[in-house]
């Protein structure tokens, strides 16, 4: 009956304390300069917060494997959507292109 997992209230209180602390942390960190790492840190903290909510408040830690599989699939396809779309934009001005086609420099085939 692991499905009927009743968690002690203490766990909820611990989690909310961590979540609030992380919220303060993410605001504080935003004002420090880490270059491009600022984005990584901000998203990283958000991911940790989301995982805490998912695992404890939403009981995913104690859910059936199939439920966890679906939750994971959601995250994976979310990333796929964004990553592949972005890959187009990041590679649009890649240089150099391959050499132009050699035939272009040949004599015209006919008149």
């Amino acid at each position: 009956m692991s499905e009927h997992h009743v968690m002690p209230i203490r766990v909820y209180l611990t989690i909310i304390a961590i979540l609030m602390a992380l919220t303060v942390a993410t605001v504080w960190v935003a004002f420090l300069d880490f270059g491009y790492l600022n984005t990584v840190i901000a998203v990283g903290i958000a991911v940790i917060k989301a995982l805490l909510v998912v695992m404890y408040f939403m009981h995913l830690k104690y859910a059936a494997p199939i439920t966890r599989l679906f939750a994971g699939a959601g995250a994976v396809f979310f990333v796929i959507l964004i990553a592949i779309t972005l890959s187009d934009y990041r590679s649009r001005d890649w240089f150099p292109f391959p050499e132009p086609w050699e035939q272009a420099h040949e004599a015209p085939a006919s008149h």
Partner: peptide, 29 residues
């Protein structure tokens, strides 16, 4: 009921995914 709700939430993730993709692309530009 539980599995059904989680699957619905997956659709919600993908729903917001479209907006997040637009956000990420435009922010990178």
């Amino acid at each position: 009921a539980q599995l059904g709700m989680w699957i619905f939430l997956v659709t919600e993730v993908m729903f917001f995914g479209g907006l997040f993709a637009a956000y990420v692309v435009y922010r990178s530009l």
